[in-house]
């Protein structure tokens, strides 16, 4: 569903993303791990067509993002980091706007879409509140609702559980898991336990390069008995000294 081939992004003299390749099939949840500044967000922004890669390609459902960015954007649900939304709009107005841009112009269909995601993300109680009055957890869910409104075949989620309390984290994970069977999902995270909890595959990147691409079980098997964060540290430190 999502295929990335030799993606490169250069900022000044820094190769923020340095030749990343991977593919994600439907039904897979790919966990994107790495220290801050490793290039996670940059890679996601290139897949979603927000920034242009300096080299390499990303395709979603067979469409090349550099050739037909709008075609890719149609198929993607994207939750940017920290879930930006228009603060002066109410949750309903905001989702209505997204629904219209996503092509649901007819009132009945638009309403149905909004109701569906409001239920899915448990936002019904705050539907008439402006987004600026919402707590971080609710804002995050608005971002989620926005990404799901058109039931996209591919989801790109940049730190979907960032800033949520443990209950909300669990809720979001359950939600992602429940949708995963028919979607290709990429999510980035700092939280290693999240990988164990929901991901079917893990990619660890450091300094813009992939240092591990395997199942969570295989990752564990690298150092039997060690905790995940120890393995993570070994992998990302190795790269730093190389």
């Amino acid at each position: 569903m999502i295929a990335v081939q030799g993606l490169v992004k250069i900022y000044g003299t820094q190769r923020a993303v340095d030749g990343i390749s991977f593919t994600v099939q439907r039904g897979e949840i790919l966990g994107f791990l790495g220290p801050n500044g490793a290039g996670k967000s940059t890679t996601m922004k290139m897949i979603t067509g927000f920034i242009r890669p300096d080299a390499g390609t990303a395709t979603v459902g067979g469409i090349d993002v550099t050739a037909d960015p709008v075609g890719v954007k149609r198929q993607l649900g994207y939750l940017p980091e920290s879930a930006p939304a228009y603060p002066e709009m109410t949750v309903e107005e905001f989702l209505g706007f997204i629904a219209e841009v996503r092509g649901f112009r007819e009132t009945v269909e638009k309403r149905a879409r909004i109701e569906h995601v409001l239920t899915l993300t448990h936002l019904a109680s705050v539907r008439a509140q402006t987004i600026e009055t919402l707590s971080k957890g609710y804002k995050q869910r608005v971002g989620f609702a926005q990404a799901l409104i058109h039931n996209p075949p591919a989801l790109v989620l940049d730190e979907p559980t960032d800033g949520l309390d443990p209950n909300q984290k669990n809720e979001v994970r359950t939600l992602i898991k429940s949708m995963a069977s028919e979607k290709a999902v990429i999510l980035s995270t700092h939280i290693l336990e999240e990988v164990d909890a929901i991901c079917t595959r893990v990619i660890i990147i450091a300094r813009g390069r992939i240092v591990a691409d395997e199942t969570p079980a295989a990752l564990r098997a690298r150092q039997p008995g060690a905790r995940l964060d120890e393995i993570f540290r070994t992998l990302t430190a190795d790269n730093a000294s190389a």
């Binding site: 922004k45 067509g49 927000f50 954007k73 940017p80 920290s82 939304a85 997204i98 841009v101 092509g103």
Partner: peptide
């Protein structure tokens, strides 16, 4: 400033 530009330009619009 609000970062919504990222949201806007990942919607299917030119």
């Amino acid at each position: 400033r609000a970062g919504t530009v990222e949201l806007l330009f990942t919607l299917p619009i030119t």
